[in-house]
């Protein structure tokens, strides 16, 4: 495969409606249903942040049900 354009560039921390987190290249349009959070950074830096940011792995709907 050819070299990647996006791998070495800026990435966003992103979150969907279920509260799941991931990362996405800043150069590409955000897929539907995902929003960007926080500052851009390298991919690894974003992942390191998510390690502390994403505390509850349960999807939001389940959290609400269980907390009720």
């Amino acid at each position: 495969m050819t070299r990647s354009l996006t791998a070495g560039g800026d990435w966003h921390i992103v979150r969907n409606g279920e509260g799941r987190h991931s990362v996405w290249p800043a150069l590409l349009p955000l897929p539907e249903g995902w929003i960007a959070e926080g500052a851009k950074g390298t991919r690894d830096a974003c992942l390191a942040q998510i390690e502390t940011l994403w505390a509850d792995p349960r999807p939001v709907a389940l959290r609400k049900l269980m907390d009720a």
């Binding site: 921390i13 992103v14 969907n16 409606g17 279920e18 799941r20 987190h21 991931s22 990362v23 996405w24 590409l28 349009p29 955000l30 897929p31 539907e32 249903g33 995902w34 974003c46 992942l47 390191a48 998510i50 390690e51 940011l53 994403w54 505390a55 792995p57």
Partner: peptide, 26 residues
């Protein structure tokens, strides 16, 4: 117990919603 690794391997899906699937897919 590994949110960072999870985020690394499970990434946003840009195609699913365009092809008739729900938003926020992975």
């Amino acid at each position: 117990g590994r949110p960072g690794t999870t985020a690394d391997r499970f990434v946003p899906d840009p195609f699913g919603p365009r092809l008739g699937g729900p938003a926020g897919a992975r």
